[in-house]
């Protein structure tokens, strides 16, 4: 009797073990299926996100500059921002302003673009509206090759830098340098890519309301503008400038370097106070 009872117990235990093993196997299979499903869903999500990212980058590239609605909106914004503010050459603001902010920049420099557009805390737009518009400060733009000279995607980076900066200075001959530079920064392509072409530079000029295109094209050949870009570069090097945007402020109480990078409106204001 005891032997039969033991046999029954053993059989029961074996059956339970078998059932447990089968259940565990089924669960493992199900988990692996869910695991594969999660991977598949994640891959789809990643592909969609990357597609969105690539699509977004294409829409901001310079290739479709003149037809892009965003470009038109940028040009209109710049025209409003600079309306009724005096311009002369690369100077923005009243010639009689007691304080002068010198802005060393490179049109291909993305940090300059952020500072100019007010991204990342950049204080230039507010500074233009509060201090420059009211005749307190004038801004003088000077060229200094940074991002452009590091652009290895073009055969002669220095020459391209000169060409693009002169294109902006040529607009300055019609007192529209700042319109050109601001639009350039707003439609800037990806750093290190060959987006600055002849068509790109002309496209920006065409967006500036009231710019005489034939006069602008003639001014681009003006040797004095090429010399001015080279002189700006030399001045920057002599002054110890190493990055863009670099800002130097000068007023009745002296001259002060505000450093390089995206300066906030408060930092610019502190500079004005220090030299006023």
């Amino acid at each position: 009797m005891a032997s039969r009872k033991e046999q029954k117990e053993q059989a029961r235990a074996a059956r339970i073990a078998q059932e447990q093993e089968a259940a565990a196997k089924a669960q493992r299979t199900r988990r692996l299926q869910v695991f594969g499903g999660v991977i598949a869903i994640a891959v789809v999500v990643i592909v969609v996100v990357i597609a969105l990212s690539v699509g977004g980058s294409k829409s901001t590239s310079g290739s479709s500059l003149t037809t892009d609605a965003k470009a038109k909106a940028a040009a209109a914004y710049v025209a409003t921002e600079l309306k009724n503010i005096p311009q002369s050459g690369t100077t923005l603001g009243s010639p009689s302003a007691k304080v002068t902010l010198t802005y060393f920049g490179d049109l291909q420099c993305p940090i300059c673009a952020d500072f100019t557009k007010g991204i990342g805390g950049g204080g230039l737009p507010q500074f233009i509206q509060n201090d420059v518009r009211h005749g307190k400060v004038k801004i003088v733009y000077r060229s200094f090759c940074t991002a452009s000279c590091n652009n290895t995607s073009v055969s002669n980076p220095q020459q391209l830098f000169n060409t693009q900066q002169v294109a902006a200075y040529a607009a300055g001959k019609q007192n529209k340098f700042w319109n050109y530079a601001e639009i350039f920064y707003r439609e800037q392509g990806t750093e290190g890519t060959p987006y600055v072409t002849s068509g790109y530079l002309s496209g920006i000029a065409q967006e500036i309301p009231g710019l005489n295109m034939s006069a602008w094209q003639s001014a681009r050949k003006d040797q004095t503008l090429h010399t001015q870009v080279n002189t700006d570069n030399s001045v920057a090097t002599t002054d110890g400038i190493q990055a863009t945007p670099a800002l130097v402020i000068k007023g009745p109480k002296g001259i002060q370097s505000l450093g390089a990078g995206i300066l906030t409106y408060a930092q610019l204001e502190a500079g004005v106070k220090a030299v006023s």
Binding site: T60, I111, E191, Q242, T244, G261, I262
Partner: peptide
């Protein structure tokens, strides 16, 4: 390019 590489990345498109 004369500025922080983090700034370059963070300000890129």
């Amino acid at each position: 390019s004369g500025h922080s590489s983090c700034q370059t990345v963070q300000s890129s498109q």
